[in-house]
Design a binder for these strands. Structure first.
Lengths: 125, 125
DNA sequence: CTTGCCTCTGACATCCATGTGAGGTTTTAG
DNA sequence: CTAAAACCTCACATGGATGTCAGAGGCAAG
């Protein structure tokens, strides 16, 4: 498929796909006229990349992890595996933090709703 | 306390504190010479602001939520409360997404480690 | 062939929290 | 009193993923 279709299927912009390629995260075969072509597999790859971005990884970091993704068997993924463990831990801490924040928001909402009830009760009396 | 101490206690830069004030997230009393002074409570407030930033809220959004935080009793926090529910949901979805990503990373790590074992066994034989 | 849509490269623009530096005043320690 | 350290304002810089525009070429349908 060409870049527009991949973009549509993966839910990202064409611009982003070109950027991913520039960062070494994605490869394409080129037609004689220079247009990029992709296989169906790339859809999944792109959504995974997106997922990593959403988890706060940078292009550079994702690039370092890719050996583990591409060749789940190669031995060169030594540093990649360590990097992955590192990011996994960072992500875990971040998740904990977010859950904490969500709890705080819930607390505030409860407090506010409770007060609203109080107000209504007062108004009623 | 003055701005430097608040920065140190809350673990943020002085620059950031001035920025928070500019965004209406933080207030300070000024000494005759114009220096900012804060109460102990502001430490907690700043860390909470930081937490919200870390959760992906923008200054604008945080600003909109503050009525709920400051006056857990005022009636003007109507829009604020709704905004809060909105952000709470967004955060929940984001957390789910991150957990999914973390699981994916774990899967990859397991696969890679398994292969490493295989390699070692092969080498041993 | 022409029209319309897709793609190419390259470059500049944007957002937003934060860094950084200049030039000047205030506070504190010796 | 003096020097160091902290503070003030203003303003420009940064990073990183993405948007956007310009100018040119590619490709399918009528």
């Amino acid at each position: 498929m060409r870049i527009g279709e991949l973009a549509a299927r993966a839910g990202v912009s064409v611009r982003s796909l070109r950027y991913y390629e520039e960062q070494g995260l994605l490869t394409s075969t080129r037609s004689a006229s220079g247009q990029r072509h992709y296989t169906d597999d790339e859809v999944e790859r792109v959504t995974f990349i997106q997922r990593l971005y959403a988890a706060g990884l940078s292009s550079r970091t994702i690039y370092e992890l890719l050996p583990c993704v591409d060749a789940p068997s190669e031995e060169n993924s030594d540093a990649a595996l360590e990097r992955m463990a590192q990011e996994h831990d960072r992500l875990s801490r971040h998740i904990d933090e977010l859950i904490h924040t969500r709890d705080a928001l819930e607390g505030l909402m409860a407090t506010n709703r409770a007060h609203r009830e109080t107000l209504r009760a007062t108004a009623a009396c």
